[in-house]
């Protein structure tokens, strides 16, 4: 069991965001979470990452209920997954190299030479030239920032990767190459990728499974082709949004 979300209810004051969201991720695959604005996709992600507590319900990562874990146990779990935030969330005071070094220093006891070799490998895996190492995040373009963030999230050989809108803010060429990269990594490293996206090309191109949120519940959960045919006004307008232009 990689990820289990069981009957999540989230309320902010009187506003109900989730009203019983449940799904299970069992085997390595690429799963996309979709939904209109304000359906609580990001909130759900923050809850899975342990940054926010749901009002009720249970979230298990790698078979462990995250609510019952101590801070140390939670950090051990955190070493097993990587997160790519929407704008990369690189530490702006650190160079690219130092950014990728952070997880190694927090979780691993390795010699500095080994870590620098690993950093170069991570950069190469994310499709970046080694010269990028010395740059500051502010000197990078949006696409490169995302790649560096991906390199950082891959640092500790995660089994599970969370991506928050991986292709937003990228031009179509960069977006497709980022998709391709994610799919390659997923296939060859046996990663499970859980992503939030609005990008139909990502959905059709690389996902195995789509979970659609609406009205605080899971509307439908299945392969993209199946979800596309589902009869619901939001799903229909969502999947036809490109045809209309």
């Amino acid at each position: 069991m990689i990820l289990e979300v069981e009957n999540i209810v989230t309320r902010f004051r009187k506003q109900t965001v989730h009203d019983g969201v449940s799904f299970v991720v069992e085997k390595p695959s690429v799963i996309a979470l979709i939904g209109g604005s304000g359906t609580g996709k990001s909130v759900l992600l923050r809850e899975i990452l342990g940054l926010l507590r749901p009002t009720s319900g249970k979230i298990s990562l790698f078979g462990q209920d995250i609510k019952t874990l101590s801070e140390d146990e939670l950090n051990a779990i955190r070493a097993r997954y990587g997160v790519l935030f929407q704008d990369g969330a690189l530490f702006s005071a650190l160079t690219v190299e130092e950014n990728i070094r952070v997880p190694f220093e927090e979780h691993m006891m390795l010699s500095p030479e080994v870590v620098s070799s690993l950093i170069e490998l991570r950069l190469a895996l994310a499709g970046l030239a080694p010269e990028t190492k010395q740059k500051m995040p502010s000197e990078l373009s949006g696409g490169m920032r995302k790649r560096v963030a991906l390199a950082r999230s891959l640092a500790l050989e995660p089994e599970l990767l969370f991506l928050d809108e991986p292709t937003s803010g990228l031009d179509p060429i960069n977006a497709r190459s980022f998709d391709h990269l994610i799919r390659t990594l997923c296939d060859s490293l046996g990663l499970t990728v859980f992503l939030i996206t609005h990008d139909l090309d990502t959905l059709h191109g690389i996902t195995d499974r789509v979970i659609a949120l609406a009205d605080g519940k899971v509307l439908i959960d299945g392969p993209p082709r199946e979800v596309e045919r589902f009869n619901h006004p939001w799903i229909k307008s969502y999947f036809s949004s490109r045809a209309a232009t």
């Binding site: 490998l121 190469a124 895996l125 499709g127 030239a129 080694p130 010269e131 060859s188 490293l189 046996g190």
Partner: peptide
């Protein structure tokens, strides 16, 4: 099979990039 994927991915990426020059 799954190990071969990883090995060839690493090899391919490694060969594709130039080693970094010391700055």
């Amino acid at each position: 099979e799954n190990h071969a994927h990883i090995a060839s991915l690493v090899k391919e990426r490694w060969c594709a990039h130039e080693p970094s020059k010391p700055v």
